[in-house]
Amino acid sequence: MTGRGVKARPRNRVIVNKTIAPYLFLAPFALFFVAFLIVPLIYAFDISLYKKAMVGGVRFVGFDNYTKAFADPKFWEGVIVLFKFAFLQIPIMIATALVFALILDSGVVWAKAFFRISFFLPYAVPAVIATLIWSYLYGPAYGPIGQTARFLGFEAPDFVSPEWILGSIANIAQWQFMGYNMIIYFAALQAIPTDLEEASVVDGASAFAFATRIKLPMIVPTIIVTVVFSIIGALQLFTEPFLIQNMARSVINSNFTPNIYAYNLTFVGQQPNYAAAISFLLGGVIAVASYVFMLAVNRRKDR
């Protein structure tokens, strides 16, 4: 009965072989990736080499915009704000996310699923709306925090004063993104085989020692990735200060962060060429910051 087989019959279908197939699978994504990522970047780089003159229209100026941006205190003030923000926000967020993930994973507490999901939910709230809600909460007249302070006989804190503004923005980010990081750590912790836990119990380790000495080191690669993404996100800060600007015009100026600066240069200042150079420079700062972080981490690992 063997040997009759399934003889190849004339096909009107095109059979794609495995050499071409991956390119075809990639094609739709790659097409849009090129059109909406590569091409805009090249275009931005191109326009960053020109300058709009008062008379005579646009002319080629080479890297003038970059040298100008390099010496522009408005850009560097924004970068300093970003770094202050990142150093304030990221460590607190990562630490709380880790602690909560370890607590939930250890199974010591009640209502684990409830906490896990409710901590994550703010991630579903759009950044714009989260900022709106918090700016209401920060509000001096109608905000409940101010109300409580006054009720207790204190002065209502000014959340958008120059001293408090970064903390107020960091708080919004903490509220929004802590749970997201916690979920990722939690999943990584859950993936650790249970026989390790059994082994540590046999070794006489306490639950706390097991969590901090065995589990934590095992998810270090996951932590590094989330920190890199947090750095990238923090250095692109835009939406929160852009909206809070409405209630704090004197504190959040038109170059509070480089992204706000570039936005205002383009749409208010009519200087898209210079804005493109600022954006590229910010991209460079982000790349360097991520790289320095990875380098520092690898150094410590080698030691």
Binding site: L26, A30, F33, F36, L37, V39, P40, L41, Y43, A44, I47, F229, I232, L235, Q236, F238, P258, N259, A262, Y263, T266, P272, A275, A276, I278, S279, F280, L282, G283, I286, A287, S290
Partner: peptide, 24 residues
Amino acid sequence: LMLALVLGAVMIPQTALVIPMFLM
């Protein structure tokens, strides 16, 4: 190379992309 490009894309600031995209 393609994987590296896709990963690198995450680092690009929004303004660097959206503003030229708007102009185009």
